[in-house]
Design a binder for these strands. Structure first.
Length: 736
DNA sequence: CCCGTCGTTATTTTT
DNA sequence: TAACGACGGG
């Protein structure tokens, strides 16, 4: 039996107060790196071990499966009984709830979850007048509406989309979606809210079941999730459910996806009597890094306010590096990393952060060239790949034969001569007969419809449909007879019998892709699931609700540099971080004002606070953008932070503070374009630092066969020539 | 049905 | 610049 005092003794006073607090709602404002996961997990252990709270009556929700798993593992390490606590993502809770109350929610118990892409397809089927692009946009708005807990008849729908057609489109989509029996992501939250608000009985059952509710990363919850929490807590009917939320308003970065910072800012009003505890001791970053982070975020108006204190000394100031172009930026990063590597710093200590995925390209090219191993996080999602979606569609159709989207995706793949017209006929037939034909017809849904429709069709379509049905039939027979086997074997069978494996293998040869291997990866990931209906739904759920789970070839022990968008770094930390592209228009992105600009600022804050020991920030004066060469200005965030928090390398553009541009402008060479800014940057008198030779000064400049050449006199006596155009990365201009 | 060409358009995306 | 969708010919 673990002794609670052991783990309480590890906490600082605020953390301990947060763990033992009871009797009123609790809001924990946990700054970056302040040990919030430790607090939540300790609290779970404490409630079970010390307060005799039943583990299964604790519900802890997070946003990602990874976070849920980490929380579960750490809680179990402190208190084995925590294995029975419900530690889930919001969406997996919704899924659990909806399978339990499928009937009340008006959906199929075997539902699968449609993603954004499926939504767009469904919109275009529901409203054929829309172009593909319009449908995608409408789908996006519908998703957003659901995040805000708005139904097609909600008045506030205009706040999401002012187009007068929108409510109609949304309603048509809903109708179509309900006819498939499936749900979309928004429904996983919205439908439980509707059911709970509607059915007192069910609400009471939930209050009886869950006595403690904790929410992690509360700053990223949306309105629907807030309403779900409200319903589950029964705050308005004195259900006596204990609520504890943890978050950091300064790290709210998902507004564009419906996250509502207001949720955390107004928590105290919505849950009267709330106690507030701040965790402000930062155990991750050095003081200098935190100082820069604080300077940035202090420029935001809309925040609860908190000041992080460094627990591990000041360290070195963040280095702000001004570079001529994005190529120099990539070279600078590579050089920095290689230099450190030679001194024994592993690659995995490093992360390169950028605002948009497209920016990863320059680094990939450069690193490939220099043989620096790297891992790009998150750009191409496994589950979004065509071959994976194809196989999953087959499985989804077997799980739920009314799944129109899955049906359309694979009925003619590989091609059997079943065009869109034929598909429409089958889908219409199913919809017309589903309600009247009794249970049998309903159960076999689109497959039965295929059989029926085939009778009255052209030879070609008839043949195609018969082929398709026989594939499904074979697989169904196999599925039913293999209940003792593994699901992975069934998926393998599906991949073969459907012809999809062969189809995608041949694609591999044409375009050198890895599709067959990806399919194999999918098959492997199902080995632990039984070949039963339950196993199948569980597997599909796991895939749909945890899209990070399948990252093929991602060896965790590989020593690589991480390339990642700042959004994706939430919850991560690295010893050394380089945040790139700090230029107006890139970061913050253009057109950001007001609260959008505040969110960009928070994003910068998140990026900075990922760094444990060293932080570098780069800003280029020229960047190729959409095929154009753009002259960039340093990010306004750099000015807001103030110069004193950084150590500055390279030459800041004149717009960065009051610095005058180097005298080099008069050095004899005309400054025509940015390409020629070489002579401006690398002019006589400029002080430099070189990796091998140390400090020095440019004593002569000139051109040799068209290339700009500088001569540098180093303090150690060496005198060398360089071509800054190619060697800028090994030479750093000292500004101070 | 497949493949090539032309024109358009460029965030962030836990689930 | 590049990548992707729309369209038309084989």
């Amino acid at each position: 039996m673990p002794d609670a005092d052991d783990y309480l003794a590890l906490l600082n006073p605020e953390q301990k107060a947060a763990v033992i607090q009871e009797g009123a709602p609790l809001l924990i404002l946990a700054g970056a790196g302040s040990g919030k996961t430790r607090v939540i997990t300790t609290k779970i252990a404490y409630l079970i071990g010390r307060k005799q709270v039943q583990p299964y009556s604790i519900l802890a929700v997070t946003f990602t499966k990874k976070a849920a798993k980490e929380m579960q593992d750490r809680a179990v390490a402190l208190e084995p009984l925590a294995a029975n606590a419900q530690i889930r993502t919001f969406h997996s809770f919704g899924s659990w709830f909806l399978r339990k109350y499928a009937e009340e929610a008006g959906i199929d118990k075997n539902f699968t979850v449609y993603d954004d892409d499926d939504m767009a397809t469904l919109v275009s089927k529901a409203v054929p007048a829309l172009s593909r692009q319009e449908a995608a946009k409408a789908a996006h708005r519908i998703a957003l509406a659901k995040d805000f807990c708005l139904t097609p008849d909600s008045k506030n729908l205009v706040d999401i989309e002012s187009s007068p057609d929108f409510p109609e489109i949304y309603a048509a989509y809903e109708k179509r979606l309900r006819s498939t029996g499936n749900v979309d992501f928004g429904d996983l939250i919205l439908l439980p809210v509707l059911v709970l608000n509607d059915r007192e009985q069910i609400r009471m059952q939930m209050h009886y079941r869950f006595r403690v509710i904790m929410v992690d990363e509360y700053q990223d919850s949306n309105v629907a999730q807030f309403k779900l929490l409200q319903a589950l807590s029964g705050a308005e009917e004195n259900a006596g459910v204990y609520v504890c939320v943890v978050g950091d308003d300064d790290q709210s970065i998902y507004r564009f996806r419906g996250a509502e910072v207001q949720n955390i800012l107004t928590f105290q009003q919505n849950f009267p009597g709330t106690e507030l505890i701040r965790l402000e001791r930062n155990y991750r970053s050095t003081g200098c890094i935190l100082a820069a982070a604080d300077r940035i975020v202090s420029n935001n108006e809309n925040r609860l306010g908190k000041t992080l204190r460094a627990e591990r000394g000041n360290g070195n100031p963040p280095v702000l590096v001004f570079l001529p172009t994005q190529d120099d930026e990539a070279a600078f990063c590579a050089e920095l990393i290689m230099k450190a590597y030679k001194k024994g710093c592993p690659y995995h200590d490093w992360a390169i952060l950028y605002r948009t995925n497209a920016q990863s390209l320059e680094f990939e090219t450069e690193f490939l060239h220099r043989k620096i191993p790297y891992t790009v996080v998150g750009s191409l999602k496994f589950y979004e790949r065509e071959e994976i979606k194809d196989i999953l569609a087959f499985l989804a159709l077997i799980a739920n034969p009314r799944d129109e989207i899955a049906f359309r995706r694979i009925v003619n793949k590989p091609a059997h001569g079943i065009g869109e017209k034929t598909q429409d006929t089958v889908v219409e037939y199913m919809k017309d007969h589903a309600g009247t034909a009794g249970g049998g017809e309903l159960r076999s849904g689109l497959i039965a419809a295929c059989r029926e429709c085939a009778k009255s069709m052209s030879k070609k379509a008839q043949r195609g449909l018969t082929d398709f049905v026989s594939v499904i039939d074979d697989l169904t027979v196999y599925f039913d007879s293999a209940a003792a086997g593994k699901l992975s074997v069934f998926i393998e069978k599906t991949a073969e019998r459907s012809g999809l494996l062969e189809y995608h293998s041949s694609q591999d040869e044409i375009s050198g892709t890895q599709r067959a291997a990806n399919i194999q990866e999918l098959i492997n990931s199902a080995v632990l699931y039984p070949c039963t209906r339950q196993g199948l739904t569980d597997f599909l759920d796991a895939i749909e609700l945890d899209r990070e789970i399948e990252i093929p070839g991602k060896e965790h022990d590989a020593d690589t540099v991480t390339l990642i968008t700042i959004h994706n770094t939430k919850g991560l930390e690295f010893s050394r971080v380089i945040i790139t592209g700090l230029e107006n228009g890139i970061f913050p992105r253009q057109d950001k004002t007001g609260s959008d600009l505040e969110e960009e600022r928070r994003l910068f804050y998140v990026g900075i606070t990922r760094a444990r020991d060293e932080l570098y920030i780069t800003s280029c004066s020229v960047r190729r953008l959409y095929g154009r060469t753009e002259y960039m200005q340093p990010s306004q965030f750099l000015l807001e932070a103030g110069k004193d928090v950084f150590r500055i390398l390279g030459t800041p553009p004149s717009t960065y503070g009051n610095d005058t541009f180097p005298a080099a402008l008069h050095d004899g060479e005309p400054r025509k374009t940015a390409g020629d800014s070489l002579s401006a940057l690398w002019c006589s008198g400029t002080r430099l630092y070189h990796d091998d030779w140390g400090y020095g000064q440019i004593i002569k400049t000139g051109y040799t066969s068209g290339e700009y050449v500088i001569t540098v006199q180093f303090e150690n006596g060496t005198c060398r020539q360089f071509m800054p155009q190619y060697q800028a990365h090994s030479l750093m201009i000292i500004h101070e």
